[in-house]
Design a protein around this nucleic acid. Sequence first.
DNA 1: GCAAAAGTGTTCTAGTTACACCCATGC
DNA 2: GCATGGGTGTAACTAGAACACTTTTGC
Lengths: 230, 230
Amino acid sequence: MSYTYKYPKPSVTVDCVVFGLDDAQKLKVLLIQRGIAPYQNKWALPGGFIGLDESIATAAARELKEETGIDKVFLEQLYTFGEVDRDPRDRIITVAYYALINIGEYVVKARTDAKNAKWFSVEELPPLAFDHDRIFSVAKERLKGKLRYQPIGFELLPSKFTLTQLQRLYETVLEQKLDKRNFRSKILKMKLLVDLEEMQAGVSHRPAKLYQFDKKRYQELEQKEFNFEI
Amino acid sequence: MSYTYKYPKPSVTVDCVVFGLDDAQKLKVLLIQRGIAPYQNKWALPGGFIGLDESIATAAARELKEETGIDKVFLEQLYTFGEVDRDPRDRIITVAYYALINIGEYVVKARTDAKNAKWFSVEELPPLAFDHDRIFSVAKERLKGKLRYQPIGFELLPSKFTLTQLQRLYETVLEQKLDKRNFRSKILKMKLLVDLEEMQAGVSHRPAKLYQFDKKRYQELEQKEFNFEI
DNA sequence: GCAAAAGTGTTCTAGTTACACCCATGC
DNA sequence: GCATGGGTGTAACTAGAACACTTTTGC
C-alpha cells in the first residue's frame, strides 16, 4: 500500500519528555534506547508518528504507552520543533509534549521500537538522538517556569505525601533553597491540601503528617480568579 | 508531479493571529477573506502550507508576508492544533503563531489566496473558518498572560510613544483599569524607557513626553535575573 | 477661560523575608 | 541518649494599593 499526494509533505511525530522524581527527590527523565536506525542504540525521547485518525495528544499518550508502558498521566503540549535538518532521513516536524509522573507507580518496560527504557538524572544525561537535547532543555525550562504558578508539582508525588517531600520537590525543580516555615504557611494558607490525619510510616525519626492535594477544590477556586503561587 | 509515501501523512500548515492597536487604542486582529474553498468568502486567520525547505517559523513569516504584506514583526509560536476533524478536506495539523504589530506602520493588502484583508476589533469578530475562533481565543489568552511578564506590549506601539498610550494598551489587553501614578512609577523604575526629550505634537491639550523602549538594556538586564513585571 | 489630558507623592495595608528552638521516633 | 527530620510564630521589611490636585496646551 502506498499514498500519493500532489505536493510533498513533511512527516509529523510526537515526542515526550517524561519527568519523574526518584526516592531521593532527584529529578529524572525517562529515555528509550533506539532499536532502529537512524541513531540506533542512542538514547532518545519516547515518541513516534501521528496516525491520521488520532489527535496529537492522543498520539502522544499512545506512543508513551507503547514504548514505556506509562498510561494516564499528566501530559501537556510543549512546543513544535520543525527545523529543516532536524532529522537526517527526511523532513520531520515533531510536536513535543511533557509528562509528569510519580515514578513509584510505574515499572517502565521497553517495547516496540525501543530496546531499552531507563530513568536518567537530569544532571547526567547521555548524548541524545536528533535535537532531543534541545527539546529536553525547553521542557525543563517550562517545568521550572510553570511549577510556581500552577499546581502541577503534585503530579510528580504519590497521592499521599509529606510537606517536606513537597518542599524538596520545589527546591529540586526550581534549583533554590526555600524556607521551611514560609513554605509551609504559604501552601497551607491556600487550603488546597487535605490533612489525612495519617502518619508517615517506616522512618527512623519523628513521622510526618500525610497530605493529599485537593484537585476538585482547586478547580472550584480557579473559576473565582484564585491564583496558585509558591 | 506527485509524491508517494509508504504511509499516509497529515498535511501541516501555519496560521497567524496578528494583533494590532488602532488609533483609539482598541485591540484588533487581522483577518483575511478566503478566496477559495473550503469556507470560500469566510473570514480566517492568514496562513498556509509549510514548504519542505523552510522551518515552521519561516513559513509563518512567509505566509504572513504573502497574504497581507506584513514583514519583519514579532512572531512567536502559540500552539499546535491537530484535532482529526478540524479541516473538512483532509487531516491537517496547524502550527499557530501570534504576531504583534504597530498598525500604523503597515497598509495591509490582500494577496494570493486572500481576496480581502481587514482589521477587526477583537470584540466583534465575524464567524471564522475552521477552528480559527478557538485558535484566536488561545492567542488572546496568551497575549493577556504574557503581557505582564514580558515586555512585548511595545511591539504594538509606534517606536515613540507616551506613557498614557502605554497604559491604555495595558488596560485594553488586560481588560482592567490601572492606576496612573502607580503605573508610571512602576514602569519608570525599571529604567527600560528612554526619555526622548521630545513632545507629542498635534494635540489640543498639554502635550506628553515621548519615550522609547530600550531593548538592548532589557536584554542585558535579562541575563542578570531581572524580571520585567507590570 | 475652559476643556482635555499630563504630570506628580504620600500614607496605609498586605505580603514577603528572615530567623531558632523543642518534639517525636527508631535504634 | 543520640541522631534525624518534624513541627511551629513573630518581628522587620518591602512592595502594592489607594488616592487628588496643579500644569500645560489648543481653541
